[in-house]
């Protein structure tokens, strides 16, 4: 019993939880910024940039905008952050001491949705029109991208007859896995809010989107949540590919390689596209998303 608690705390705080999740997420975010900069012929930010961005925000004085409940202003990012840490702890990365039980995938999905929900509420709470438009778009986009996301995960689960993430990580690579990874990748674009689905934080229309009124510590927490979300979602795709390897180092290597490849692919897509309208995005996810889901389910059932 004691052991269980220690393992849980280790998973929450160190691996794959807060600490390594944040570092990994920052690394991935830096990668994407650097990569895009290089694609655009620029030098790009230095390696430690996301880290310093975070600490600088921590060090700023927080301004609570007019008419916003202060407790709520702080609580929303904290709730989002906590749920994403718990979600990370569930991720069966190689060497994780984390908690694993039948049905943890369902819990993971709940926890992934939580920061999004908090984001949307945060947008509404801050009483800025820009944030409210952004929050609405985010809410709509959530409904759109969850179709391929949940579809792929459910199809895989049906195929493996288990809703346990560890089973996912242990499963061999098959066509169904690859299709599911593709579907997850399509959803990832909108989940990370990169082009062409950077609709909720479209700077040119609605200033800074949902977070327009956030600053200082709460904004830092949102940024941290975003970093953790990145490592979680990219990691979720990565664990699909570590099944066939036995050695933990090999697994780790594959995990990192896949993560980097995924983030590079994301950024190639982002760099080469204009932003779509939310109508386009919804249509895209509900047509191609349904097609992808059907394909994955078919592959899972037939192959």
């Amino acid at each position: 019993m004691n052991n269980w608690w220690i393992n849980a705390i280790l998973a929450l705080l160190f691996w794959p939880g807060l600490l390594s999740g944040a570092l990994f997420g920052w690394f991935l975010l830096w990668m994407s910024r650097k990569f895009i900069a290089r694609l655009q012929g620029r030098q790009g930010p230095p390696f430690y940039q996301p880290f310093f961005d975070f600490w600088k925000l921590i060090g700023k004085k927080t301004i609570i905008p007019n008419g916003v409940n202060p407790v709520l202003f702080y609580a929303l990012p904290i709730i989002g952050l906590i749920s994403i840490i718990f979600a990370l702890a569930l991720l069966p990365v190689p060497g994780s001491s984390g908690i694993s039980f039948e049905g943890d995938l369902v819990l993971l999905i709940y926890l992934i949705e939580m920061p999004v929900l908090m984001d949307v509420i945060a947008g509404y709470v801050t009483r800025s029109v820009y944030a409210q438009v952004g929050a609405t778009r985010e809410a709509i986009l959530t409904i759109a991208y969850n179709l391929p996301f949940l579809g792929a995960l459910i199809a895989l689960a049906v195929r493996l007859h288990s809703f346990k993430l560890a089973t996912f990580a242990a499963a061999p690579i098959s066509i169904a896995t690859i299709l599911a990874a593709v579907a997850l990748f399509v959803a990832l674009l909108a989940q990370l809010k990169v082009n062409p689905f950077s609709i909720p934080n479209a700077e040119q229309e609605i200033v800074a989107g949902i977070h327009v009124e956030y600053n200082g510590l709460p904004l830092a927490l949102f940024e941290l949540t975003h970093a953790l979300e990145t490592s979680l979602l990219v990691g979720l795709i990565s664990i699909l590919f570590i099944g066939p390897f036995t050695s933990i180092w090999m697994k780790l290597l594959i995990f990192f390689v896949v993560a980097v490849v995924v983030i590079l692919l994301t950024n190639i897509t982002a760099a080469g596209t204009a932003r779509l309208k939310v109508q386009h995005a919804f249509k895209f996810y509900w047509t191609w998303g349904i097609a992808a889901t059907v394909l994955v389910v078919a592959a899972a059932l037939i192959l």
Binding site: A37, R42, P46, V207, A208, E213
Partner: peptide, 22 residues
């Protein structure tokens, strides 16, 4: 902030909201 001068090298980013500004 464009390729020739690229302020991102020193971490500078143009922000849309004054709340995010240094």
């Amino acid at each position: 902030f464009s390729p020739r001068y690229d302020g991102e090298q020193i971490g500078a980013v143009l922000q849309g909201s004054p709340k995010h500004t240094d």
